[in-house]
Amino acid sequence: MVAPARRAVLIALGLMALTIVAALAGRGRTPAPEVADLFPGGILRMGIETSPSPYIHLWDGEPAGLVIGLGQALAGELGLTPLFVNVSLDGRFDALRLGIVDLLIVVDARQTAMEADVLATRPWFNAGLALVSHEDLPFRSMQDMAGRSLALALGSAADAEARRWQRRIAAFTVLPYELPQHALDALRFRVAHAALVDALDARLYLRQQEMTLVMHQVSDQHLAMALLSDPPTRWRVVDRALGKLFEQGTVARLLDRWL
C-alpha cells in the first residue's frame, strides 16, 4: 500500500529544496572527524514516512513539522547536511539494512526490540495515552476514575484501554464520542469528569483552550530514532547528539512549536 503519489512527489520536491537550503546554511561547518567517517559525504540520510501528521505537515506546499525540525536540528548538531528520504512503513527497516538511509526518525521504541540488528536512541516524545481533567478536579490515574465518567473516542486506543480499566476497578461510566476532540469538548463542558485521549490530541487541544485543563500520561508510547546496531559508534554519535538537543532545550522548543 502506498500513499497517493502526487503528495509524495510534492513532499519529495520540498525535501530536496530543504536539503539545498540546509546545505547552503551549513556551509562552513565541518563535522567532527569521527562523524565524517561515519557519514560519508557529510550527509545525514533520514528515513521518514510522508503520511503521519502532525509530525510532518505540508506547510504552504513545503514539508515542515516536528519531524523535519528534529531532523534538521540533529543534522546541524552533527555538522551534517540533512537529507530526508521517503520510506514506506513496510520497507523502512530494509531501507536501513540496504544502506538507503542512515536512520529512521520516527520509530516506536518497542518495535526495535523485534529487529535483531536495529537499536533505538533515547526517546524524543511519549505519545501514549493521557488522562485529561479540570485543574480544580484533577484525575491522575485509572484508580481515580471509579464512580466517575470518562469521555473517549469510540474504537480508539483509549477505548481499548478503558475496557481494560473496567475489568480492574469499580464501575465508571464511559461516554463514547466519534472523535477525540468531542471527548475533550465533553470534558470542557463538564459533561464528563475526564477524557482519555492520546498525548498528541491532548497537547493540540490544550494549547487551543483558554480553560485550565491538565493532562497526566497513563500509558507510554516512546518515539525514538532507529539505526542499525552495527557500527555501534554511529548509534552512539546520533544518540549523544540527540541528548545534546535535549540539554539545549531544542527538543522541548520543537515540541512546543508543533504540538
Partner: peptide, 16 residues
Amino acid sequence: NDDPHHDLAVSPARRI
C-alpha cells in the same frame, strides 16, 4: 484505517 494521526485514515466511527 482508523489510526488517529494518519493522513489516509478515518475516525473509528467512520471506519465502521
